[in-house]
């Protein structure tokens, strides 16, 4: 069942792409991440040109995040105001990121920046999350009391101006940290072809100290807004969105996301974080491996003329 993709100009196995969409959608719904960091490398591995994979992925991530954010909002687990502030930063970041990526492609260094970003961000974040969540799991196994929750948030969070009330998250903090975080994630989303949930979720937990129940739903909201913008910008600027590919992916993705969102209720939060950390770490190391291994073919054809 092969199908020809009109923009990517390659033929792919349709059921395989739907299945890939479903698996990534499941992970996305379960952990509240876009899943782009898994999807983009896999599409490239299947022979789809990288720019098309990065751009079409944005449509898929937006769709599967949309399908799970509604489930979260019904459980009142989305902080709309926080999501809006994050997304405002994300919009600025996405514009800057798309331009930065064009410039890097022109220099022929897009591959390098993508590999280094994957290696750096995924392995640091994956490693930190893994340590933290394994610690939590071990403590629970031994029956140790949970460490006293450090409710005292970092002082600088309060020292900054432009304070805003976030009633859903029970926070009264400056808008500068979430805006900066949103912008940073927006840049990453354009460069790495990801939604940025893997940065956003830990940052919301450990830096903004949002209640755990609010984090996943809110990060999905910010991901939808950022990826929707990235997807339209990529189509408009680079003509690299393949609607057939995106449709195949989201066919599986939206269904997978539903099951993922439901499955997440059956696991403890620290177990979920440990699994996610492991996936993140593995993908990061795999992507970074290319920097260290001697390539079989030293020459690489670059797609497009920049």
């Amino acid at each position: 069942m092969d199908i020809y993709l009109p923009i990517a100009e390659v033929a792919v196995n349709a059921p395989l792409i739907v299945l890939l969409g479903a698996v990534v959608g499941f992970i996305s719904g379960m952990f509240g991440i876009g899943g782009g960091f898994l999807m983009t490398p896999m599409l490239v591995f299947l022979g789809i040109p990288a720019p098309v994979a990065v751009s079409s992925m944005a449509n898929h991530v937006a769709a599967s995040s949309m399908s799970s954010v509604i489930a979260y909002s019904r459980r009142r687990a989305v902080d709309l105001r926080m999501g809006g502030v994050l997304a405002a930063g994300g919009v600025v970041g996405a514009f800057a990121g798309v331009e930065l990526f064009r410039w890097l492609r022109l220099l022929g260094q897009a591959d390098l920046v993508v590999s280094v970003s994957y290696l750096l961000f995924l392995s640091v974040i994956g490693g930190l999350m893994l340590m933290e969540s394994l610690g939590a799991i071990l403590r629970r196994r031994r029956g140790d009391p949970a460490p006293p929750r450090r409710d005292r948030r970092p002082v600088w969070l309060y020292g900054l101006p432009l304070k805003m009330r976030f009633p859903r998250s029970r926070l009264y903090i400056s808008v500068v940290p979430p805006l900066t975080l949103g912008a940073f994630v927006g840049v990453l989303s354009a460069i790495m072809g990801v939604g940025g949930g893997f940065v956003l979720v830990p940052a919301m937990v450990y830096i903004l100290r949002m209640p755990a129940g609010m984090v996943v739903g809110t990060s999905l909201l910010q991901i939808i807004i950022t990826t929707a913008l990235t997807g339209v910008l990529q189509a408009g600027r680079n003509q690299t969105v393949d609607i057939v590919l995106a449709t195949l992916l989201l066919l599986g993705g939206i269904v997978g996301a539903q099951f993922g969102a439901r499955a997440s209720a059956r696991f403890r939060a620290e177990e979920l974080r440990a699994i996610l950390a492991l996936i993140v770490l593995l993908v990061g190391l795999r992507m970074g491996l290319g920097l260290f291994l001697t390539p079989d073919e030293p020459f690489v054809l670059l797609s497009g003329m920049g």
Binding site: H60, A235, Q239, I243, T247, I254
Partner: peptide
């Protein structure tokens, strides 16, 4: 469509994706 009117194509593709996500959740 994607090459001659890229912005309308991009908007339509994204609108379709979001609608599909919403429909699935419904």
């Amino acid at each position: 469509w994607a090459h001659d009117r890229p912005w309308s194509y991009g908007l339509a593709a994204m609108a379709f994706a979001l609608a599909a996500g919403w429909a699935a959740s419904a």
